[in-house]
């Protein structure tokens, strides 16, 4: 038996928003420690990894590990039937999980709606992502990162990210001209959500597709801050941390042969 009740149902809506443009079908892997998802986009250039801890649910029950194969478009349609303030409960029979039950309860518990989503078999390749010491780790306001991606898309489909001790610089070069945005580290102790920090082992310069980065910024409503981790010739990690877990996006860089 699997059951996970999330008091903040709106969080599930936001999570779904942050993956559904990148991935159409995905396995939600459920275990006694929580729910996780790992999936590549169709072009296999980007990867999304989601982790929700069991403690974030009340209650959470999962007797044995199993996977829920979900079409995210279908799940999204059903999730639209939930109110923003609703408590959402996910239920499935782990021995023959051919459907996922979603229960939406309003705050006064007067209205309860129940939906069944048909599940599917998804043959998905999982990649092993090792713990990495990145050359550069940058924390910045998530809304700022979203704006930079949106602005630079006006100029080019690619962005070069340069990180040094003193600044992170985003540069785009296109047919109409060029553009760049430079951010310096700031420490706003009274407003930590607005701070920018750079931890640097060595300077890095990498080029990425703005289309994917822009897609990742759908995670912006999940967290005030975003973490960017970069190493030479390695995929970029973009992480949004939540109270209940995290969503991580990985993007392969553009590199010379």
């Amino acid at each position: 038996m699997f059951e996970a009740r999330l008091t903040q149902g709106a969080l599930l809506k936001r999570l779904l928003d942050s993956v559904k443009e990148l991935v159409t079908d995905a396995n939600f892997d459920c275990s006694e420690t929580g729910i996780s998802l790992q999936a590549m986009d169709n072009s296999h250039v980007a990867l999304v990894s989601l982790s929700l801890r069991a403690e974030g649910f009340n209650p959470y029950r999962c007797d044995r590990g199993f996977s829920l194969g979900v079409n995210l478009n279908s799940l999204n349609k059903i999730m639209k039937c939930a109110g923003n303030e609703d408590v959402i409960t996910l239920k499935a029979d782990d021995s023959s999980a051919d459907s996922l039950c979603l229960l939406f309860e309003n705050s006064s518990n007067e209205r309860v709606s129940e939906y069944e989503l048909k599940l599917m078999d998804i043959d998905q390749e999982h990649l092993s992502i090792p713990e990495t010491d990145y050359d550069a780790t940058v924390m910045m306001p998530s809304a700022e990162f979203q704006r930079i991606c949106r602005d630079l898309m006006v100029v080019s489909e690619s962005v070069t990210i340069d990180v040094s001790k003193d600044e992170i610089k985003f540069t785009a070069e296109g047919e109409l001209g060029t553009g760049n945005v430079k951010l310096k580290p700031t420490s706003t102790i009274d407003k930590p959500e607005e701070s920018i920090t750079i931890e640097l082992g060595q300077t890095v310069s990498l080029q990425f597709s703005l289309k994917y980065l822009s897609n990742f910024t759908r995670g912006t409503p999940l967290s005030d801050q975003v973490m960017l981790c970069l190493s030479d010739n390695m995929p970029l990690l973009v992480e949004y941390k939540m109270d209940i877990g995290y969503i991580r996006y990985y993007l392969a860089p553009k590199v010379g042969d």
Partner: peptide, 14 residues
Amino acid sequence: GLNQKRIAWFYLPK
């Protein structure tokens, strides 16, 4: 020019 790599170019299957 630079080429867009795939993610599996960097990480091995589990």
